[in-house]
Amino acid sequence: MTPLKSFSIAVRTPDGVQPMFVSAAGGRFTIYQRNHVASLTAALAKTFPVVQRLVGEPFFAAMAARFIFQSPPRVPMLADYGADLADFIAAFEPAESLPFLADVARLEYARVRAWHAADHASPPLDGADAVAALLPHRIVLHPSATLIQSDHPVLAIWAANQPETAVPVEDWQPETALVHRSGDVVLNTPIDADTNTFLAALLTAESLESALLALPDPDTAGAALLHVLQLLQAGALITTCHEGTLP
């Protein structure tokens, strides 16, 4: 085993012994063990403030320590760290009593990802010609966009736990959220059930036209198309009209 390999294992092993080749009396090696966990816990708290607020700081710190050991950062951009925290929470028994917690983590991670994601300039959508021109093209999510389908009122829970507001969750219903960046703002857009169904079909369809034709009830096509146009205009969806502009 190389020196830095044993050093790195010792740093990541809580209560582990320090490597033989390091001269440090007085328990000084523990500084590195503590720094590793504390600095990454702080990074996770920055990305997941609502999760931290929902469980409290001591629980969050204990959960983060387990997560950091199981799933350490693989790249040095700390804004990217925590992609799999939601899955970890879903399987973390001590958090079982908060079944919505994993989806809140998904929403918070999607918001940070949206902030740092690539740009994509969308052409303006004005006039019937522009809409007709969209029909043969594939529609995909903007690079900043994430769709989160939750069995819980994930948007309401998130909104209720912002520092500046205290909005009680009044209607405990499943919610689907589309998170994306618009200019300098990250938006949470609620997606209703019909749009959600259509969106799921649209994002895997060959083209907007084929998704509309595949609708089981043609009468709903108008409403679905309207929602898709709104999301295109908001920049949450993009078309593959302009070759070479996709990331």
Partner: peptide, 8 residues
């Protein structure tokens, strides 16, 4: 080390 970033 070993693909892990220590943030230290």
């Amino acid at each position: 080390h070993d693909g892990i970033y220590f943030n230290d």
